[in-house]
Design a binder for these strands. Structure first.
Length: 271
DNA sequence: CTACTAATCCCTT
DNA sequence: AAGGGATTAGTAG
């Protein structure tokens, strides 16, 4: 079986007939479409170093999942493919996308041959080293990348791509983390809202806990206030008269049995 | 089908 | 020219 289109077994019998698939750059139609989309893309703020050090991310930002690569045979396959690709890339150096169409101009068997994207996976060791540096510095300079590429037998381009992609991955993880936090908040608020609505639908008396009818309460309160004012008036008059007769005009203040005004609260029941 | 990842393309700085 | 965002395409689960 081929891996990533670098090695292709041309003999179904498996008699060692593996050959390199021609390194063909992308279709230009592809460029057109991506270019058109790129015009309308949203520009998001660039990642800052502090984003990577966000304390809330310790769980979300674990090592990348390289589970499948525990398979020894595939690791070897990776390595072979990687080495094969590298030797080819030395021939086709610095291909910058659509400007390199020599595959089409040269031994083009088809007018539109299937374009295969070069694909491989870095080895766990390589990833481990890359991750280690990423932890230290998510944005290494050229010197650091060069050093790393030498150590890992990777192209500087590959190292650059890896860091680029890793930063993107980090950003999406951060966004996911934030999204989940927001979702939690949202759920909480929604539950709160529901309970408030419920309480509004079935109001209860703050004094006795029994059912309360809001409309009735305000009506009753009005009656009580009128009655209260009437009694106060009456008491006023009586006190004034008493004071006149007893020669103590201040008697009202000390005599008055009525509490201060804010006595009737909404939400009390009629019982 | 979905998630992940290496690589590509185009644009901005 | 380098880096970043959007995107593509190969692969595994």
């Amino acid at each position: 079986m081929s891996f990533g289109g670098f090695l292709e077994n041309t003999s179904p019998g498996g008699g060692g007939g593996a050959r390199f698939v021609a390194d063909i750059p992308y279709n230009n139609n592809n460029n057109m479409s991506t270019g058109a989309i790129a015009q309308t893309r949203l520009v998001s703020p660039s990642i800052t170093k502090s984003m990577f050090n966000s304390p809330g991310l310790s769980l979300a930002l674990q090592q990348p999942n390289i589970d499948g690569q525990g398979d020894i045979s595939r690791m070897a396959e990776n390595f072979e493919a990687s080495v094969g690709r590298r030797s080819r890339e030395e021939e086709h150096e610095s291909r910058s996308g659509s400007d390199n169409m020599d595959g089409a101009s040269g031994d083009d068997q088809d007018d539109n041959p299937p374009r295969k994207k070069r694909y491989h996976r870095h080895t766990p060791q390589q990833i481990q080293e890359l991750e280690a540096l990423f932890k230290e510095c998510p944005h290494p300079d050229e010197k650091q990348r060069l050093e790393l590429s030498r150590r890992l037998c990777l192209e500087t381009r590959q190292v650059k791509f890896w860091f680029q992609n890793r930063r993107t991955q980090m950003k999406t993880q951060l966004e996911r983390h934030e999204n989940s936090l927001l979702r939690q908040d949202n759920d909480k608020l929604r539950a709160e809202n529901m309970s408030i609505r419920d309480a509004m639908r079935n109001p209860s008396c703050s004094n006795c806990g029994g059912p309360a009818i809001i409309g009735d309460i305000s009506l009753e309160e009005q009656h009580l206030r009128i009655e209260n004012a009437r009694l106060k008036d009456e008491l006023d008059r009586v006190c004034a008269l008493a004071g006149k007769f007893l020669g103590r005009p201040d008697i009202f203040v000390s005599f008055s049995p009525w509490p201060s005004n804010a006595e009737f609260k909404p939400g009390t029941c009629s019982g």
